[in-house]
Design a protein around this nucleic acid. Structure first.
Lengths: 250, 250
DNA sequence: CCGACTTTGTGCATGCGTTCACAAGGGCGT
DNA sequence: ACGCCCTTGTGAACGCATGCACAAAGTCGG
């Protein structure tokens, strides 16, 4: 099916938006597999993932024509294909810098180990924390060892869970040591050379976005209440389809 | 400029993508203010925020014509305007459900209090944790008190930092109690009625996205190394401008 | 063995977001 | 007071993502 002249089925031109959704599909697929479900339709899968079924089909079509018309997708097979596409069939050593509450939360987070991510080390600059055990068999190392850890354990992914002031320095050292992918939890904009991939998670920003929408909701309610019409609660057109939202039937 | 029949300058039609960037601008503006800088140009601000200057100007133009041609933007004034637009001039009580490592990290995160977010309560279902102090003056309450806390303290924002299995139940209770904005850290797709805003932060998903790009990089390097050409390291066109990335000059 | 039914995969149109490029506008030096 | 120069604000083009609607394709019952 679908003769392709070039090598890999997808890999080359998979849209970024699709990549961001694949992990969600994967997680849902795992829950289906645990329930012993062998095949799923795009409709079911889409409902469980909180997306449009057409979008899901188009997303999956980017990695190839897995799926049988009239039947659906084989759960196990699809799990394998999505995992392979995301690169989760191989082992990814991860180094976490910063052993505060957040670093500890990450070290204890079960979602890592189960997806091919292995915590190579958790490091911290505070001598009082170095040497303590924060997770099963996970002892905090010194930040001085960043270069050694990265080199000796072939780490290519680094997680920054330090205070904002220390983030850029840690980032520079990680990059210099050879790390090419960085997940940054510190509330700063990191500068990195080209070729290094940075993703950012900012807890405060997410709350601020929520606050904006919450304020808008109450503003609209007040304004329309003071003026005339009703239509206060129900989502405006701009609300529908906003990212990070999942809405099901009332 | 741009006579508007309706009330507020923006508020109505601010693109979602712009909203997501405003908090970043705001944070950068604070750092400028701390350094005693009175005015900034769009170029400087954009560089510090890691975005295109045209994009920044268009973003800011959505909230009004603050800024002086030939000069730039007044830092303090812009801080106020952005804060107001995001709804940060008012106080937002937040309830955190789940006092594990993540919940504790959130309770201790300084970025909340400094932005108008006040932690009304931290709740947990585990009796062993209830009653312990996890931050300055912050004692963990029982999950049984969700409804009381929400009602008595007019909480409209809830943060879910529970295990995946408990998330939907907590979510339902929060919504029933009157919460209309939810920040979810649990790796599940939440079902909520329309009118409730859910944002999702999934640590594992971010890592999986990084893994995909890392794999693609190494795939390209191997493939091109085995075949012919050089161009292995430098970013492909698809890499440039991908969201969540910030790259500065080498 | 065939026909009807189910579900995938996708062409197409629409809308949103980004970027370029430039005119409009205000300050500052002379 | 005037003109130069700098920066903002925005019109317009482009590209990406979303969602509809349908043809292709395979299964299952009879």
């Amino acid at each position: 099916m679908s003769r392709r002249p070039n090598a890999a089925p997808g890999s080359q031109g998979i849209p970024e938006a699709t990549i961001a959704r694949l992990p969600v599909y994967l997680r849902v697929l795992y829950t289906f597999a645990e329930q012993g479900i062998a095949t799923v339709s795009s409709e079911e899968l889409a409902a469980a993932a909180g997306v449009n079924s057409a979008k899901l089909r188009k997303d999956l079509s980017h990695l190839g024509s897995y799926g049988t018309r009239g039947v659906g997708y084989d759960v196990d097979y699809l799990v394998y294909q999505v995992s392979r596409e995301l690169g989760l069939t191989q082992d990814w050593p991860v180094v976490i810098v910063g052993a505060g509450n957040l670093g500890r939360a990450l070290a204890n987070y079960g979602g890592f180990a189960s997806r091919g991510f292995r915590i190579a080390a958790v490091l911290d600059a505070d001598p009082a924390v170095v040497g303590t055990e924060i997770a099963a068999g996970q002892v905090v190392g010194s930040s001085d060892a960043i270069e050694d850890v990265v080199a000796q354990r072939s780490v290519s992914i680094g997680v920054i869970a330090t205070p904002a002031a220390a983030a850029q320095g840690v980032c520079d050292r990680l990059v210099a040591a050879g790390v090419t992918s960085i997940l940054n939890f510190a509330p700063v904009v990191l500068s990195v050379p080209v070729g290094v991939d940075v993703r950012k998670v900012d807890l405060s920003i997410e709350l601020q976005i929520l606050a904006f929408h919450a304020q808008r909701r109450s503003d609209v309610r007040v304004a329309s209440g003071a003026k005339s019409h009703y239509r206060a609660e129900v989502g405006l057109p701009a609300l529908a389809g906003s990212p990070g939202k999942s809405v099901t039937a009332p």
